[in-house]
Design a protein around this nucleic acid. Structure first.
Lengths: 104, 104
DNA sequence: ATCACTAAGTTACTTTATGTAACCAACTAT
DNA sequence: ATAGTTGGTTACATAAAGTAACTTAGTGAT
């Protein structure tokens, strides 16, 4: 056993990002506040899983959910400070992908 | 539709990292060459899925698999240059996690 | 009033991914 | 001959994700 235990903070961060769609939701919200349907059609995820992910992320303090009592009601999702701080991660993935992923 | 299509390179990179265990496998291999069983016990993944992931990563040119005809045969997994270049991503996740994930 | 429509989900059901544990081949040491 | 090792694979069980229909509350059109 070379590494009997991996840093739990790192492990938690990785497990967050290892969930399908998490990265794209954050990426999308880095462009600003968005509504449920906007997110759904922008990233092509099912309503069910988007709903799950947004709950996860809200619970982790990464996403903020705001109910605006317009009619019909508007629900806006945005990143908290913690969520915005993940831009550094998204950036590094983005720049790596530009350098190393070949087209088609 | 705000963003009808996300950059395909970025999307591919994200989909790679969104697969369970991928991040930890790369993290682990950043410490140097490792054998199948070492990886397995270090990150606590089942042999089946580890086998799948290593095949994926090999096929993506991220991991190199080397057979050493010792007895019993030794199989060493290591990162290619492309794989090593992902250190920047792992780093950013690591440093974010130190700043923002609170313990327990 | 009745019908159709919208946003933001939820529900029931199907398909895919992951986990578990047993097994295998080729060899070695006892 | 028997047991042990590495690097897997296989069959079966459970969890996660996809699909499509449905819901609730309100609005506007007929």
């Amino acid at each position: 056993m070379k590494q009997p235990n991996i840093c739990p903070k790192f492990e938690q961060a990785i497990s967050l990002l290892s969930k399908r769609w998490t990265g794209l939701v954050i990426y999308q919200l880095l462009n600003g506040t968005q509504r449920f349907n906007e997110l759904q059609s922008a990233i092509g995820v099912s309503g069910k899983v988007l709903s799950d992910r947004l709950k996860d992320l809200e619970q982790q303090g990464i996403v903020h959910r705001e109910v605006i009592p317009d009619t019909p009601v508007i629900i806006q999702y945005s990143l908290t400070t913690k969520g915005q701080s993940m831009q550094s991660i998204i950036q590094s993935i983005e720049s790596w992908s530009q350098d190393w992923i070949k087209p088609e």
